[in-house]
Amino acid sequence: MSTLLEVSGVSVSFDGFKAINNLSFQIGSAEMRAIIGPNGAGKTTFMDIITGKTKPDEGRVIWGEKSVSLLKMSEARIARAGVGRKFQRPTVFEDQSVFDNLLLALRKDRNPFAVLLYKRNAPDTEKVHDLAAQIGLSDQLERKSGELSHGQKQWLEIGMLLAQEPRLLLVDEPAAGMTPEEREHTTAILVEAARTRAVVVVEHDMEFVRRLNCRVTVLHEGAVLAEGSLDHVTSNKHVIDVYLGR
């Protein structure tokens, strides 16, 4: 299994506070990984660094077979390179229909002129319908996405992520605020996605993580505390200390 993303020795501090401290992390090209950690462990900042939102003070972020550095690229270019990100709160374009949301996310030329001259065609429409079926929103396509329920918005956002056809999916707390059935559906979508691409899930909920059935990385104070299967890390003494307090 080849390495898709390699983060090594990354540190970043905000006004003297070290949010990420010499963190190293690797993930393969078709792998599911869960990241857990207490509040303030640096999970979101970690994702910010990968997606280019935050520039680290030091360290390297190497991407893909050609081993390009992500640090010099803009957010949009990183996204085009194949990193998709889902935010903690569902962020879909509420003013636009589900169809438009998905069409917007579809992997296409992102150049303004190409977009201006874009004409909707049958294969693209079909792709959108497929995606809608995958996330269970087939009958909601013409509705404004603002009218969807919270869970539907989460799925729509995951659908938009999938439409981007990313090679690495970063998902921030996908199950927050979902009913048990919705969670199950979300798990299914993510596990399915991880067959063909790398998926990193940041989650608090141990139950959800257990269901994902994957390697787990534990972050604490901006650094990796432990890594391995869920059972392995939960039996780790440091992890227990961190979670339960000393």
């Binding site: 997606t51 939102k53 803009s74 957010e75 949009a76 270019r77 996204a79 085009r80 998709g84 990100r85 935010f87 962020t91 879909v92 374009f93 509420e94 003013d95 636009q96 917007l104 996310a105 992102r110 303004p112 977009v115 938009m160 981007q164």
Partner: peptide, 15 residues
Amino acid sequence: GIRDDEARVRFLGYS
């Protein structure tokens, strides 16, 4: 999309 959520559009890969 830019009007409603600029960051989201950026993470979709649009400059």
